[in-house]
Simulated assay, not measured.
Amino acid sequence: MTKLNLCVDIDGTITTPYYWLKDGNQYFNTNLKPEDVCEYEIHKVLNVSREEYLRFYDLLGEEIHAKAKLRSRARRILCKLAEYHNIHYVTAREKKMTEVTHWWIDKKKLPVDGIHILGSHYKVDKAKELRCDIFIEDRYENALEISKAGYKVLLIDCNYNRLPIPKEIVRVKDWDDIYNEIILYSDRKLKLDVA
């Protein structure tokens, strides 16, 4: 098996995608359900201004991230993948979320070769720096941008990213799908390296 550099987003990718919803509903006095989250930008989902959302995030962001739940089988699959591949978490979270992010990854006992907190959705330069083979992402726009830069992207299915995708991006429904795609990719790469 060829050793790969895997870049993995955090929110909505290894976490459940709607873990912020309960706190958002409570804070903004709404009653949204996961099926109502058909847009990535949370302030638009909540129907509040970006400034109102940012006040909410400043106040409760660390607490919300600290209690985020893992997607089903994410830890198990990441641990299996880490036996053969490098795992780099690449997140758009703000720099002020560095401590809670490291704490959460440690608490969840996730394998890690690097944690990269960018404070921006632009992830192409980090993918290049890490010599990324596969990028696992949930944000539609990120997936397009990363793919356009020449990287293989696995887009994990969420209510908010179900727009048409180019053939270079693979839509996956869960972490078992992610594992299977990575094994296929690794086997193909090994055959090309041997040839």
Rank of each mutant, 00 (worst) to 15 (best):
H102L: 12
H88P: 01
R93E: 00
Y84Q: 10
V37S: 01
R73V: 01
T91M: 06
E99Y: 15
H85Q: 05
L32G: 03
K95M: 11
W103I: 13
I42A: 08
S49C: 03
D106H: 10
L81W: 02
P34M: 12
S49P: 09
K96N: 14
L32H: 11
P111G: 08
A82Y: 08
I42G: 00
I42N: 06
V90K: 01
N47V: 04
Y53T: 01
C38W: 07
R75C: 05
R73C: 02
H85N: 09
R75D: 05
R93L: 14
V48N: 07
A66Y: 10
D58E: 12
H102F: 10
K107Q: 11
D106P: 00
K96S: 11
L46N: 04
I77E: 01
E41Q: 14
L60W: 03
C79G: 03
W103P: 02
N86G: 00
K108S: 04
Y84I: 02
L60C: 09
E52Y: 05
K107V: 09
L81V: 02
E35F: 15
H88I: 01
L81R: 03
A74K: 05
E41D: 10
L70Y: 09
K109G: 06
E52W: 11
C79F: 00
L81A: 03
R75F: 03
A66F: 08
V48D: 06
M97N: 04
P34N: 14
E39A: 12
R93Q: 11
V48L: 10
H43I: 02
A92P: 07
E41S: 11
R76Q: 12
L81P: 02
K109M: 10
S49F: 15
D106T: 09
T101P: 01
E35T: 15
R75P: 00
L59C: 11
V112H: 08
A92I: 07
T101W: 02
I105E: 06
E52G: 05
N47A: 12
K107G: 00
T101I: 04
E63G: 07
R93K: 15
V48G: 05
P34W: 15
L110N: 02
